[in-house]
C-alpha cells in the first residue's frame, strides 16, 4: 500500500497533468450531441453578453459598409418588384421561370447582427444576436445579401450559434445553375474564399465561371440562393473535383438573415418515415 502511494507521489506532476489533459480531451472528443450542445450552450450564455457589448462598440465602424450593402439590396428588390409588376401587365408576351413555385415551402426571414465570427480555424462558428425569443429554431439557414453563410446549430434565449460554411461539419446541398446537377458543398480549410464539391458525376461538363447556388433539396435553404462561381474543375480518377469561389465575404460579415422553413419538421418526419 505504501509502495502504491509512493508511486503516485513520485510522479505527482505527471498525474496532475494527466488529469487536466483527460478533462480537456473528453471535452474535445465527446461527440455525443448532448455534450457538444451543452458546451456550446454554456459558451452561448457565457460569451453572448461579452460579444454583444463588444459589438455595440465596433458596429459603428462598419456603418458605412452596411449602409452600402443595404442600399444595394434595396435596389435589387426594387428591380424585382418592377419586373414582377411589368409581368402582370404583359404576361402573354413574356415567358418566365418562376423559382418560387418550384419548391413549395414557406420561408421566413429574420434580420440579425453577427456578433462573433472566425474564418481562420478548421471549424468556424458564428454567433448572432437573435435566439429562441425571436422565433429562431435549430437547422435554420443563414444567408446574407451576397450568398449563403451557414446553418443554425444551437439556440439560446437571445443568441444562436451558427456552423459557418467554413466548417468541416457543414454539408450544404448545391447545384450548378445551368445544368441543375446537384452535389454537396464542403470546405477543405485552406482558404476562406474557396470551397469544394466532389460528388458531381464526372461526365457533367463543368466550365469555370458557372454559377453555383443552393439546390433547395435539403429543406434548409430555399432554392437558387447564390453560393459562388466555379473557379476550376479537374477529374481525378472517378471524382470530379470542383473548386468554387464563394460569393459571401466571410471576413467582413456584419448583417445576415436567418431563413426558417416553416414546413421543415413536417418534411423531415416524412423523410424519416421512409428511412424506417
Amino acid at each position: 500500500m505504501q509502495q502504491f502511494f509512493y508511486f503516485f507521489i513520485r510522479f505527482k506532476i505527471f498525474w496532475v497533468f494527466f488529469i487536466f489533459e483527460v478533462i480537456s480531451l473528453v471535452l474535445v472528443y465527446n461527440n455525443s450531441p448532448f455534450h457538444k450542445a451543452s458546451f456550446i450552450n454554456t459558451a452561448n450564455s457565457f460569451t453572448g453578453g461579452i460579444y454583444n457589448s463588444a459589438n455595440k462598440i465596433t458596429s459603428y465602424f462598419h456603418l458605412r459598409q452596411i449602409n452600402d450593402s443595404v442600399m444595394a439590396e434595396n435596389a435589387r428588390l426594387y428591380n424585382n418588384l418592377y419586373r414582377a409588376d411589368s409581368l402582370t401587365h404583359h404576361s402573354d408576351t413574356i415567358n418566365f421561370k418562376d423559382s418560387t413555385n418550384k419548391y413549395i415551402g414557406r420561408y421566413v426571414y429574420t434580420a440579425a447582427d453577427v456578433i462573433s465570427n472566425s474564418t481562420s480555424n478548421r471549424n468556424n462558428y458564428l454567433m448572432l444576436n437573435v435566439g429562441a425569443a425571436d422565433g429562431i429554431t435549430k437547422q435554420s439557414g443563414v444567408v446574407c445579401n451576397e450568398g449563403v453563410v451557414g446553418i443554425v446549430y444551437d439556440v439560446s434565449e437571445h443568441f444562436c450559434t451558427v456552423i459557418s460554411l467554413l466548417n468541416s461539419n457543414a454539408h450544404i446541398s448545391a447545384k450548378i445553375d445551368s445544368s441543375n446537377n446537384s452535389g454537396t458543398l464542403m470546405w477543405n480549410g485552406k482558404s476562406p474564399l474557396l470551397a469544394q464539391i466532389d460528388d458531381i458525376n464526372k461526365h457533367v461538363k463543368v466550365v469555370p465561371g458557372q454559377t453555383i447556388s443552393t439546390s433547395g433539396l435539403n429543406y434548409i435553404f430555399p432554392g437558387n440562393i447564390k453560393i459562388g462561381t466555379v473557379l476550376e474543375s479537374s477529374i481525378d480518377g472517378n471524382t470530379n473535383r470542383i473548386s468554387i469561389r464563394l460569393s459571401t465575404p466571410f471576413e467582413t460579415l456584419y448583417k445576415v438573415y436567418v431563413v426558417r422553413n416553416l414546413d421543415y419538421e413536417e418534411q423531415q418526419n416524412l423523410l424519416n418515415s421512409i428511412k424506417q
Binding site: F39, I40, T42, A43, T47, S118, N121, N123
Partner: peptide, 8 residues
C-alpha cells in the same frame, strides 16, 4: 475555448 466555441 469558451470564447471561440472550440470545445477543449
Amino acid at each position: 475555448d469558451l470564447l471561440q466555441f472550440t470545445s477543449g
